[in-house]
Amino acid sequence: MNSKVETLIATGIPAGKVGMWWFLASEITVFGGLIASYIVVRLGSPGWSEAGARLNFSLGLVNTFVLLTSSLTMVLAFKAVGEKDPKGLRTYLGFTILLGLTFLTIKAFEYGGEFVRGYTPAAGIFWSFYYGMTGLHALHVFAGVVVNAIVLIAALGEILKPHEHRVELAGLYWHFVDIVWIFLFPLLYLT
C-alpha cells in the first residue's frame, strides 16, 4: 500500500483482506443462488436420483480428496511464509497447483465419460444443473490455479517478499473454491 495512505488505516485489517472478504461474500451468493435453484427445481421434479446415479461416484470422491489435500498444502504454504521458509513456500504452492490441475484433469475425464454415454448438457434438467454447477466451479478452480501460479512465479523470482500477504489472500480464495465443492459433491453425487 502507498505509505501515505497506509497512515490512515482505520480498521485493523489490511485492505487486501477486507477486499477479499467482500469479494468472497458476493461469490458465495453466486453459488448460493445456483444451489438454491437446484434444490428448488429438484424438489419439484421426480426421478432425479437415477440420473444422479449415472454419475461416476468414485471419480467424484477421488476429486474431493484431491481438493481437500490441496487445501492442506495451501495452509502449509501459508505457514511457510510465517516461518520465513521460502523453500517450503515454493514446494507447497507447487503441490497446491499440481493438485488443482489433477482435479481439473479428472473432471475433464469425467465429463468425457458422461458425454460418450450420451449424458450431454442437453440430456435433461439434472444434467443441465450438473454441468452448470460443476462447470462454473471448475472455472473457479482454474482461476485459483492461475492465481497460485502467479504467486509461485513471484516467489521463484524472489520478488514476492514485499507482497507475501498475497499468499494468504490466494489461500482464502482457494479454500472458498474448496468449500464450494464440499457442497456440490453431496448435492450432485450423493442424492
Binding site: 467482500w22 461474500a25 458476493s26 461469490e27 458465495i28 451468493t29 453466486v30 453459488f31 448460493g32 443462488g33 445456483l34 438454491a36 435453484s37 443441465s128 452448470g132 462454473l136
Partner: peptide, 13 residues
C-alpha cells in the same frame, strides 16, 4: 454485491 450473485448464476444458465 449480495443480490447480483444469483442473477449472475441465472444469466450463465
Amino acid at each position: 454485491m449480495l443480490s447480483v450473485g444469483p442473477l449472475i448464476g441465472g444469466a450463465i444458465m
